[in-house]
Computed example of a mutant assay.
Amino acid sequence: MPRGQLPALKPKTRAWNKGRIIGQKRPLLPKQVWAIRARLELAGNLRDLALFNIAIDSKLRGCDLVRLKVSDLVINQRARERASVIQSKIGKPVQFELTENTRDSVMTWVNAPEMFRFAFMFPSRFHDRPHISTRQYGRLVRDWVTSIGLEPSGYGTHSLRRTKASEIYRKTGNLRAVQLLLGHTKVDSTVRYLGVELEDALSIAERIDL
């Protein structure tokens, strides 16, 4: 290097996570669930209302949610109170409940003219795809949370998966129940997924008298 010449500086690469919120997406609060639901009902958006309600009740991953078929949720022209699907990630079944509100939205959507002869609950508008994509589902979630004034970078599809599970854990402290409902093979996965802290675990232990 010639005397007096400063060494060349390499341009800094912009960090991929700069300006983004990293980590687990927040679950929705009950009042936020009802706010989104009310907006979808007022807008008469039958598909999105059914999708949102099923996402909350089923606690399914997005990849399994978008693949739901009408036959998974409806039998003999009635919505099932309980349903079971095989999880694509681990190949094992998981069961979930459908509340009355969700069952009503399912049947309203299934009987809509737009659903005539479609096998999938949420068919794609593109002829080369049988159902909506997980990416499209993610965009819908972003639109839903934005519509009630939430910052979209803090929420995602896993927010809906975690919402009811987090509320069940908060009210019962029953990790095993939440593990079964989420379809986790290990309770450790449930602990990490819910972000359970040591203080939570100790509080649960203190309520168990042996």
Rank of each mutant, 00 (worst) to 15 (best):
R125Y: 05
L73D: 06
N53H: 10
E197Q: 15
L6T: 12
T99A: 12
R192N: 08
S124N: 10
K69Y: 01
A165N: 14
I90V: 09
P27E: 06
A201R: 08
V85H: 04
V70E: 05
M115K: 02
Y169I: 11
K25F: 03
P7R: 07
P113K: 04
W34D: 15
K92W: 01
G44P: 05
L182A: 03
V74C: 09
P7M: 02
L49F: 05
K25Q: 12
A50C: 15
Y193T: 09
S58T: 08
S153P: 00
A119G: 02
L28R: 07
R117D: 13
R170E: 14
T190D: 02
R82D: 11
A38L: 13
I54C: 11
V74N: 11
T146M: 08
G183D: 08
E41T: 12
L181F: 11
V66K: 13
V110W: 11
V178F: 04
H131F: 15
V145R: 01
W16Q: 03
P30V: 11
I208E: 00
H127C: 04
A165G: 12
K89P: 07
R39S: 13
R61I: 03
L40N: 10
V66A: 10
A38P: 00
L202D: 00
A43T: 07
Q24L: 14
D209M: 06
L28A: 11
K92L: 07
T185I: 01
T13N: 08
R47C: 02
A79P: 02
L68T: 08
T102D: 11
M121A: 02
D143K: 14
T108R: 15
W144P: 04
L175N: 02
G173D: 03
Q136L: 15
E114Y: 05
V187A: 09
P130S: 09
N76S: 11
R103W: 04
G154H: 08
Q77M: 03
A119W: 00
A35L: 09
R26N: 14
I54H: 06
R14P: 00
K10V: 10
A35R: 07
I22V: 15
S58K: 09
V74S: 05
R129L: 14
L210Y: 03
G183R: 12
R67L: 13
K10T: 09
G138C: 06
C63S: 14
L29I: 01
K171D: 12
N17L: 02
G19T: 02
T146S: 15
R3E: 12
A201M: 15
A38Q: 15
G173C: 01
I148V: 04
L60V: 14
A55V: 06
S105E: 05
L49R: 07
D48E: 12
P7K: 09
V187E: 10
D188G: 03
L194F: 04
M1E: 08
R78C: 10
R125W: 08
S147D: 01
G44R: 10
L49M: 10
D72Y: 09
P152N: 07
R139S: 13
L9G: 00
T190S: 01
I56L: 13
Y137A: 03
R3G: 05
